[in-house]
Design a protein around this nucleic acid. Sequence first.
DNA 1: ATGCATGTGTCAACGCCTCTGACTAAGCTT
DNA 2: AAGCTTAGTCAGAGGCGTTGACACATGCAT
Lengths: 245, 245
Amino acid sequence: MTNDLRAERKRSGRRPRGSLTPWRIVDESLRLLDVDGVVGFSLPKLGRALGAHPTALYRHFASKDDLVLAIADRLIEDAMAGLEPSACWVDTLVDIATRMRRTYRAHPAAASLAAFRTTRRPAEMRTVDVIIGAVLRAGFKGKEAAVIYRAYADFMLSFAGGESSFLSLDPTVQEADRMAWAGAYLTASRADYPQIWRIRTTLPDVEDDEIFQTILAMVMDGLVGRSPKPCECGRHASTAKVHKK
Amino acid sequence: MTNDLRAERKRSGRRPRGSLTPWRIVDESLRLLDVDGVVGFSLPKLGRALGAHPTALYRHFASKDDLVLAIADRLIEDAMAGLEPSACWVDTLVDIATRMRRTYRAHPAAASLAAFRTTRRPAEMRTVDVIIGAVLRAGFKGKEAAVIYRAYADFMLSFAGGESSFLSLDPTVQEADRMAWAGAYLTASRADYPQIWRIRTTLPDVEDDEIFQTILAMVMDGLVGRSPKPCECGRHASTAKVHKK
DNA sequence: ATGCATGTGTCAACGCCTCTGACTAAGCTT
DNA sequence: AAGCTTAGTCAGAGGCGTTGACACATGCAT
């Protein structure tokens, strides 16, 4: 097919119609973002990468921001592909957070652009619906359900988005950051930063997955502890009588 | 003083030395970011706003990124000004998260640039030290202390950063987003999104502060529930026996 | 089959950005 | 007072987002 396009190109000096589609453009955007990061992502570059004129994309997206929203929606779609609400609301929420994070980590640069946007397109709406469904099955009602939904969703998106923002920094900057744990913090003077000093050797060993599992477990415990109903599968029952402030 | 500079300027046709300092540049950056948002933030503009040549700032910061790091550090400094570790480790962690969020919300555009960066300068190191101190006072040890520290810190920074990223979007985009709760979601068809439909009327009423209080309380409960020691003030004791996965 | 409207690809150009290298002068050192 | 360092100035290179005009292929009505 690409060869057909090339041949066509040669004949007419112009790409044939339909060779640029929103879907292909988003595909190529993800590829380019994965390779070059967020700083190397420009519409001229993207156009050239697609073998078209640098400004060709403006026929399909009104602006770069418009394209970013399409990318955002694609990420949600990818993340939630094949999602089916589990019987247990706890499992459902854990699953959604895990999926979102996995997709964001697979495309950190794209995620860092998309994470704090709202598309209001079907993929997003469906996911919101599933989350709220889980919150309602947990027995939360009315205003409290709304607050719980927002708390969970904002937490999940912020955390996954924040991780991606870090992962999409210049690799050298990232490395410098990781080295900080093994370097600056390791040599942190006992006098200036006594507490850091106490755990300096274990700090570099902490892995992203551990951090995510820990914070997600805390949040889920919090939800279980506050929920009027136990979860459907019985595995997540909590005897917590958590002190509320 | 500004008048002196202006007069000086008039005489010589050039600003006197020392009229541009890193501190003043960061100050003006914050002001400009607050007013114009992140899209209107450029070094030429910043230079002109300071009454200097558009490229003058490159004498003080090697690059825009370099300036962003200085801004990041200033935000931490502002947030933590006058912080003194409370006797109770729970109060300390709540205080730090609240301060960080308050400062980020006061300068959302600046925060959205700075939130996922690490400066490793004194202001940041001091804060890290205080947080780790609190985690250790909670009785966490070694590797677990390191994981708990990272989980808390990453959560807090992501959440406050995510909120800022949203607040620093174009006001019209933001408004469209808020209206989604009152609009798209309110009219969400019962057939397509039945769960959204069930709580559609309460969704628009959820406020940022409620969300933050809720998620922070869940995380803090999680910390208290996992901590080997009760907190020092006795007010945060938890009888939780939270189910660990 | 013909001619036209529409949509898609191309192109030149505007104004803005980041950053550089050469130049100039302010103000300290001696 | 002379010299040196360095902050401020300036012209400009190269890139970006976006626009408006143009060109041409395709689908549709005739």
